[in-house]
């Protein structure tokens, strides 16, 4: 087990995983608090009409919902293919020892 822990492969796996997870968390925080910032300080901007009587705030709010969902999709796609493949490789190596 010690060998696995210190192997470069496992180290890369961990750092990749943490990078992706923290980067996506950061993007999510940015989207949400960016939206709160607009609500609090840029109300005029949200009142700009997109078409007819629909102000920008409405499509923007809906986009926050859709974008958050897409981020979970990006992560799932990455983790269930790239990450899990690496995990399987390392597990096979453990089995050999």
């Amino acid at each position: 087990m010690k060998e696995v822990l210190s192997s470069p492969k496992f180290q890369t796996l961990m750092s990749q995983k943490n990078k992706v997870a923290f980067a996506l968390t950061f993007i999510q925080l940015l989207i949400y608090y960016g939206f709160i910032y607009l609500l609090a300080f840029k109300k005029d901007f949200l009142a700009i009409k997109v078409t007819g009587s629909i102000p920008l705030g409405i499509p923007l709010g809906i986009s926050v919902i859709i974008f958050s969902w897409l981020l979970t999709g990006v992560y799932t796609l990455w983790a269930n293919s790239v990450y899990d493949r690496l995990v399987e490789e390392i597990k096979r190596e453990i089995g050999k020892h």
């Binding site: 996506l24 968390t25 999510q28 989207i31 949400y32 926050v64 919902i65 958050s68 992560y75």
Partner: peptide
Amino acid sequence: SIGFLVGWPIVMFL
């Protein structure tokens, strides 16, 4: 409702 939704990606990533 947006506030209630945005926790889910955090649940996923962390």
